[in-house]
Design a protein around this nucleic acid. Sequence first.
DNA 1: ACAAAAGTGTTCTGTATACACCCATGG
DNA 2: CCATGGGTGTATACAGAACACTTTTGT
Lengths: 234, 234
Amino acid sequence: MEETDKDSYIQGDRMYVATDCVIFGFDEGNLKLLIFKRRVEPLRGEWSLIGSVVRLEEDVQDAAKRVLKEITGLDGVFMEELKSYGKADRDPGYRCISIAHYALIRIGEYDKELVKKHGADWYDIDEVPQLVLDHNQMVKDALERIKRKARYKPIGFELLPEKFSIPQLQRLYEAVYREQLDARNFRKKVISLNVLNKLEEKDKSTSKRGAFLYKFNYVNYQKLLRQGFNFEIS
Amino acid sequence: MEETDKDSYIQGDRMYVATDCVIFGFDEGNLKLLIFKRRVEPLRGEWSLIGSVVRLEEDVQDAAKRVLKEITGLDGVFMEELKSYGKADRDPGYRCISIAHYALIRIGEYDKELVKKHGADWYDIDEVPQLVLDHNQMVKDALERIKRKARYKPIGFELLPEKFSIPQLQRLYEAVYREQLDARNFRKKVISLNVLNKLEEKDKSTSKRGAFLYKFNYVNYQKLLRQGFNFEIS
DNA sequence: ACAAAAGTGTTCTGTATACACCCATGG
DNA sequence: CCATGGGTGTATACAGAACACTTTTGT
């Protein structure tokens, strides 16, 4: 389990390596963060990112994937190393460095039972409570990272369902950049990249008229990547 | 010492945390890398990045700084975390993850005695020999990082002496990007950023006419950072 | 019929790019 | 006097930014 691993190891004379996951989702126009309330000492009752000690025989990256899977049931989603948190005094209990990772998940697809069972919950990114240790810093760093990353990688598609409308995509970018975008310019830009396949279907959930749905075209995206391109949108 | 720390700790039942430093310099139009030849087992005689185990009471970042200082005598130079290398089998001897860092140093300023004493040497970035473990991968990753970083931060100034000419700066960018740049456009671009103070002096080392020297204006650079800007040069 | 979101084009402006010649100096 | 690298300006193309109205349809 995410918390017990760590706790069962407490000793004062050695270094522990852990990983903590900053898990983002997107829903109803808001960027969300998955956190959980600790049920065991130390720090019982405090909000925390989800993490675990890295096992001796386990790749660090695999540990992060394991954590994500344990709490959301998901694998194969976008996940990347953020950075390490290695201050000697970051954890008052024992010497532990954390290699933080961040993940972008489709908020419709996670395993709700599992999340509930672990006492985890989604928080709007503006309403994240105080977290244990340096976890708020991790969230801040991860946010900056995805903001920057969105400029050269189409990060948004990881967070949306398979079929999505252009206004939906725009709301996502607005949530990440924290600014309003011009609908005409936005549409022009994303369509010009040639990585969207328009479907016949419409999404009628947000308007009477309905917005056409699109799918992300991974083949064209690969081509684009090879050429090098700029996804800057503002 | 950079190697002995690690070696004196060998045990099979625990996780070690190390740091390895990718140290770049720039000289005579070439980007260079500082590496050293191991003098003790294991892997005696092999080329390696410079690294050390992170001490129990030491911040990871401080460990990286310590390593850099031990071998070059420098501190206060630009140094940043690259990423972690956490494969369970990356080091056949024992379980050790490495938090790699990269540094950009002024090649005229390091302590030559110290470097020599450690068996270290500068290699042209195109002529780096095979290194131990995953160190070649670290170098490759660091190179990609500085290439990308150069697009939004004026990374070049860390590698040049305090006073430098515009052609010198251009050669540095050419070495990092691995492509020829147009001298007129390059000059136009860097001057337009308003972060260079022109001096009266000239550098006559590369031409008879001499090229005016400049200093980097950190105050204006801070202003620029606040506005957000694009250092893209090509 | 009206409210509410989706969808559509054009103009302007700034910036990146391409490109060729004169300048200053030491030898 | 000439070889070598330093320094300068202009024209063109392209991409980002600003901007307002029509369409659709459920209620």
